[in-house]
Design a protein around this nucleic acid. Structure first.
Lengths: 355, 355
DNA sequence: TCAATTTACTAATACGCATTAGTAAACTTA
DNA sequence: TAAGTTTACTAATGCGTATTAGTAAATTGA
C-alpha cells in the first residue's frame, strides 16, 4: 500500500499558487485563464520535481469520463485466443488509443453474463466507451439500450443500423474462396464450419453464401459434405476424417478458419492423400504461418490490425462527440493463392492474381 | 455522454435509508453494523430496481485502490503478439482476475518510455498492481523503486531477488532441446536466435546454455552455425537460408521459437532437403499448429496459461498483503517429440518419452 | 481622472463513494 | 429504576481532481 502520494495541492504549495492554478496549467487551460509563462513554468517545475502524477480515479470522477476504453470479448474463454484475430485487433487498437491517451481494459464476457458485463462496465464509468467483438444479433437490444443512455459503442460486426461498426466483409471473403475453388474445376467441395450451424448465425450466413456460390455456377450443394468444427485444429482434423469417409470424396475443402484447415491438412496427409492433387484446401484468416507450411495454405486475408485501428478511431470520435461521416465501415479481404488449392500447380509460371 | 446516472444516494432514498446504509449493505458490512435482514433486502431491491452500478472512479477514490491490474508489455509493438505467449498469459491471467473481481488493463510500453509507463500507471493509481512481461535487468532498479513505494509488482521473469516473479525455466528448456538433438547423434547443430546476441541478454544466456550442452558432451561449439533472427517466420527463413550456405551443413538446427522454426522449415524444404532426414529441426514454444504441420514440429512446451494464472495469483496476494510463501515460482517445460527431429523415424514403435 | 476592462489569480464546490464517529431508541442488568 | 448495553441506524467527512464563480490589482480608454 503506497505511503505518500503527491497531490496537486502539494504541487500548488511548492509553486506558491492555488490548486486551481495547478490544474489549469497542467491541463492546458493556462491561456484562457491569463496565466503568465513565468507561473506556468514554476508550476511545471514543481510538478516535475515532486514527480506528480494525477490520480486517475479523482480525475475520472471530476471529469465524469474515464480514459479507458473497454474491449469486450464475447466468446468462450478458451476460444478468444485460438487464432490471431484478437491479438491483431489489440495491436491496431492500441496504436490509436495510445495516440489519444486512452488505455485498453479487457473484459472477457461469459455467455451467461452478457447483459451485466456490457452494462456494468459502462455504467460503472470504468470506461469511456466499448468495442464489442463478434456480438450476436440478440445482443443488439442490450447494446441499443446502452447506446440510448448515451454510451459510446462500436461493434466489430454490423449488427444494427444505429450502432456504429467496423467490419470485415467476411461473406464476400467466403464467396471469393469458394469461387476460386470452382474456377479451378472443383465440383464436389466440402466445408468445415467453425461452430454448430444450428446455434450460430454467422456460420449459417457463411454457409448460405457457400451454397449460393455453388448454385450460381450450376453446381449442387450437398450438405453431406458439410462438417461442424469448433475453431481449433483438432476439430478440423476430426471433421476432415469424417469427410474422408464420404464416397466419392470431395475434391476440395473449404475450412472456415486456418486453424481447422491445418487440422484438415493433417487428416488428409495421414490418409495418404496429397494436397492439392487429391484434395485441394482453402482456409480463412491468413495466419502468420500460412506461408510457411508444406503446402503453403491458400486462404483469405483479413485486415485485422486495420480493423482494430479503425474501430478505435471511430469509438474515440464517438466519445468526443465529433461528427461521424460513415458509421458503418466495411473492410475488404484478399484471396491469397498459395499451394494448397492447386492453382500454382496448374499455373507454374504466372504470378497469382489477388482478389 | 450519459444523462442520468443512478447513485447510491438515489438507492438510499428509494429504500428509505441513508446512503451510508446502502454502502454498508452493498459492501457486505451489514453484519458489523447490525442491519436487519429486512432492511438489507429493501436496499438490495431498490438497487436492483434502479439498476444501480457503483461508480468505479468514486469507489477507487474512496478506497484508495483500483480494481484493475496492469499487464505491462515491454516489447516492441509489433512483436508483442507474434506468437501465442501473451494471448496465453492473458487467458490464464483473466481467469484468476475474474475470480477476484479485477480487470486487466493493457499497457504497451515503448522502450523509450519505460520509466514513465511503469511509474505513471502505478502512481496514477489506475491499477492496484502490475505484472511486467519480459523486463530486462536494467528495469530492475525502476521496478525496485516503485516496489519500495509500496506498489505491488510481479515480473514474468526473475530479475531481482526482492521482486516476486513467476517464470518458466527456459534455460532448462533449451538444454532439453539441445541434449535431445545430441542424443540423436547430431554433432553439427545450428542455432537461430530470436534477437541480436549483442543487445539481448536473454538470448546470450540461452546461447550459453546451448554451448554448454554441446561441450558437456565433448562437442565443439561453432559460432559459424549461429544466426540471428527476430521472432517471426521470415527471419527464421532468412537465417536458415544463410545456414544452408555453410559447408558442411549442420545436420540439425535449434530455433529459439517455433515461428522461426517454421521459417527455417520452409527454407530447408525449398532447398530440396528433407526434414528430418537431411536436417533435423527443433523449435521452442509449442505453438498450437506444431502438431498439425508436415512434419510435425518437435519443440519445447511452456505452460503459458498457468504462467499467467500464477502470476495473477501472486500479484493479488501482494495487493491484499497476504503472506507470500514462495516469492519466486519456477515452472517447467516439456520436450514434445514429434517428427521434425527424427526421433520417431528412428523409433517407430515406441511412444516418445516426455522430458 | 474615474469607470471599464483586462490580468492573474483563488475560494468554494461537485463528482460518488467508503468510512469514522456518532446518536436515539430499545433492551438489559442489578 | 437508573445505568449500561445493544440495536439500528445517520451526519459528516475525506478521497484528489476539475471547474465555476468570483475578486483584487493593474491597465486602459475618453
Amino acid at each position: 500500500m503506497p505511503t505518500k502520494r503527491v497531490t496537486s495541492r502539494q504541487v500548488a504549495k511548492k509553486a506558491g499558487v492555488s490548486q486551481t492554478t495547478v490544474s489549469f496549467v497542467l491541463n492546458n487551460h493556462a491561456a484562457e485563464n491569463n496565466i503568465p509563462n513565468e507561473t506556468i513554468e514554476r508550476v511545471q517545475q514543481a510538478a516535475r520535481e515532486l514527480g506528480y502524477v494525477p490520480d486517475a480515479a479523482a480525475r475520472t470522477l471530476a471529469r465524469g469520463r474515464s480514459n479507458n476504453i473497454g474491449l469486450m470479448l464475447a466468446q468462450p474463454h478458451d476460444q478468444v485466443f485460438i487464432d490471431e484475430y484478437i491479438p491483431n485487433i489489440i495491436t491496431g487498437l492500441s496504436r490509436i488509443t495510445k495516440e489519444h491517451g486512452y488505455r485498453i481494459l479487457l473484459e472477457m464476457v461469459h455467455d451467461d453474463l452478457h447483459a451485466d458485463a456490457y452494462a456494468n462496465l459502462m455504467r460503472s464509468k470504468e470506461v469511456a466507451g466499448i468495442i464489442v467483438n463478434q456480438p450476436f444479433h440478440n445482443d443488439a437490444q442490450r447494446l441499443l439500450a446502452l447506446q440510448q443512455e448515451g454510451f459510446a459503442i462500436v461493434t466489430l460486426a454490423n449488427i444494427h443500423p444505429t450502432i456504429p461498426s467496423v467490419m470485415v466483409d467476411k461473406l464476400l471473403g467466403v464467396r471469393k474462396a469458394v469461387k476460386h475453388l470452382i474456377k479451378l474445376g472443383h465440383e464436389r467441395i466440402g466445408c468445415i464450419t467453425y461452430a454448430p450451424i444450428a446455434s450460430n448465425e454467422h456460420v449459417r450466413q457463411r454457409l448460405m453464401i457457400f451454397q449460393r456460390a455453388l448454385e450460381s455456377k450450376g453446381l449442387v450443394f450437398d450438405d453431406g459434405l458439410v462438417r461442424e468444427g469448433a475453431f481449433d485444429p483438432d476439430t478440423g482434423y476430426e471433421a476432415m476424417k469424417s469427410l474422408l469417409n464420404q464416397s466419392p470424396l470431395p475434391t476440395a475443402v473449404f475450412a472456415m478458419n486456418d486453424m481447422m484447415a491445418y487440422g484438415a491438412m493433417t487428416a488428409i496427409q495421414e490418409a495418404g492423400l496429397r494436397i492439392p492433387e487429391d484434395v485441394a484446401l482453402v482456409g480463412f484468416d491468413d495466419v502468420r504461418l500460412a506461408r510457411f507450411t508444406t503446402p503453403a495454405l491458400t486462404t483469405i486475408y483479413e485486415p485485422d490490425i486495420e480493423h482494430g485501428y479503425r474501430a478505435g478511431e471511430l469509438l474515440i470520435r464517438l466519445i468526443n462527440e465529433e461528427p461521424i461521416e460513415q458509421p458503418h465501415i466495411v473492410l475488404g479481404t484478399q484471396l491469397k493463392i498459395r499451394d494448397s488449392c492447386g492453382w500454382k500447380l496448374a499455373n507454374p509460371d504466372i504470378t497469382p492474381p489477388i482478389s
